[in-house]
């Protein structure tokens, strides 16, 4: 299931809903992305970030997320999967994204979860603009994310 929304989500409630009534799930892996309050490697070296605005391409976003989720379900035997991605203005510490994968065994759940995040980072049409002490700044794509996504190409 995929959801693109402005509102916050409750991680516990979402995971409960995903696995409710199921007894075939042996492993549930999840990743949540939050708004970090600094730019760069560590807080001391980087600029402070008070908030971030996430823009997306309505229509293509839902399409891409559904395709990415379908691809994960093709590669791993998942019992259930969930992607929630927020947009709009989010302050430091707020939740941005939740990815959860349930499977009979943990290896599939872990791998699918990592795959979904890597693919989402490099192919879902979202853009982040950070509010820093020196003004707003568009986040630039990181070559490291491309390398992480490339490991799943086959």
């Amino acid at each position: 299931m995929i959801r693109v929304q402005r509102e916050d989500f409750d991680i516990g409630a979402e995971l409960d809903k995903l696995t409710a009534g199921r007894s075939d799930i042996g492993g549930l892996a999840m990743f949540a992305g939050l708004v970090r309050d600094f730019v760069g490697k560590d807080k001391a070296a980087g600029a402070e970030v008070s908030a971030m605005t996430l823009e997306h391409y309505p229509g293509m976003t839902e399409k891409r997320l559904a395709e990415i989720e379908a691809e994960a379900n093709k590669r791993w035997p998942l019992s259930a999967s969930l992607i929630i991605h927020r947009y709009g203005k989010l302050t430091a510490g707020e939740r941005i994204v939740l990815v959860a994968c349930a499977a009979a065994h943990r290896e599939d759940a872990f791998a699918a979860c990592q795959f979904l995040m890597d693919w989402l980072k490099t192919s879902a049409p979202f853009w982040k603009q950070e509010d820093t002490a020196t003004g707003p700044r568009w986040v630039e794509a990181d070559a490291k994310d491309d390398a992480l996504a490339a490991r799943w190409k086959k």
Binding site: L54, K121, P125, A141
Partner: peptide, 10 residues
């Protein structure tokens, strides 16, 4: 046709 910078979601 949409034009945009490299994506930075997640």
């Amino acid at each position: 046709v949409a034009l945009f910078p490299p994506v930075t979601g997640g």
